[in-house]
Amino acid sequence: MVEESKRPDFEGSELIVRYLGCRDYEPVWQSMKAFTAGRNAQTPDEFWIVEHNPVFTQGQAGKPEHVLFPGDIPVIQVDRGGQVTYHGPGQLVFYFLMDIRRKRSGPRAVVSALEDAVIEMLAGFGIEAHNKPDAPGVYVNGAKIAALGLRFRKMCSYHGLSLNVDMDLEPFNRINPCGYAGLDVVDMASVLGNVDNADANMAEVSRRLLVCLQKALNYPEITSG
């Protein structure tokens, strides 16, 4: 688990990146909504990088039958697209607070860019991944390793993507992940197995994914410190 991050936030002319550490889900969600409601044409875009305490989140059109037996893990109804998913320690979450008009792009192109960035990052660890045209996210041998769910308000996005790095996957058995009964879910640690890859930790994965996302979304590369 990532403790409260000591890494500095940093910013460029177009993008601010904030490391939030490990947080409860709902306060971060409310902050995303408030940021988006209050931004204007001059507000820089932001990425928020966070890890969440255990929680199930149900998309705005989510069907209750996909929540099978949540047990002691809370279920929160939220305003993103998609069905139910799980967030917990060992999962890397990026939230994208972007004015996509600046990218001269649309929602579908943004989702595709995010998927491409995750696929490129995983390839750097020797993990072959792919997307599916009819099911947003990133998959390894048919098992889901990254989930995507965004909300667009007046062409400004919030919510984002979650990448399973090294986590307890058992809670996914308590739901139909993303609305698909029997969908296998995997994390980077289980794919890599006994491969000696000391770089596959949360900090390094977040660093590499940030670089790929900046490239895919056409932000100038910025570095901390």
Rank of each mutant, 00 (worst) to 15 (best):
M1T: 11
V2M: 15
K6F: 06
K6R: 09
R7A: 13
P8Q: 10
P8G: 07
D9K: 14
F10R: 05
E14V: 01
E14F: 06
L15W: 14
L15M: 05
I16D: 06
Y19C: 11
Y19P: 13
L20Y: 05
P27I: 08
F35N: 00
T36N: 06
P44T: 10
W48T: 05
I49V: 11
I49M: 01
V50W: 10
H52G: 05
N53M: 09
P54I: 06
P54N: 06
T57W: 00
G62P: 04
E65S: 12
H66D: 11
P70H: 11
Q77N: 15
D79M: 00
G81S: 02
Q83H: 15
T85L: 02
Y86H: 03
G88F: 06
G88P: 04
P89F: 09
F94V: 01
F94D: 08
L97R: 04
I100M: 14
R101T: 15
K103W: 08
R104E: 02
P107T: 04
R108I: 12
V110I: 12
V111I: 11
S112C: 05
L114Q: 10
M121P: 02
F125A: 06
F125H: 04
F125L: 14
I127E: 10
A135I: 10
G137C: 12
G137R: 07
I145V: 06
I145W: 09
L148V: 13
L150H: 10
F152H: 12
R153F: 15
R153S: 09
M155Q: 11
M155Y: 08
C156I: 13
C156D: 07
H159L: 04
H159Q: 07
G160N: 14
L161I: 13
S162Y: 14
L163C: 00
L169P: 11
F172P: 04
N173Q: 14
I175G: 00
N176P: 04
N176S: 07
P177N: 04
Y180S: 03
A181Q: 14
G182W: 02
L183N: 06
L183C: 05
V186T: 15
M188T: 04
A189T: 15
S190V: 15
V191F: 08
N194I: 06
D196C: 13
N197K: 08
A198M: 09
N201C: 05
A203E: 07
V205R: 09
R207H: 14
K215G: 01
A216Y: 09
L217W: 05
L217S: 03
N218L: 12
N218P: 01
I222L: 12
G225Q: 08
G225K: 10
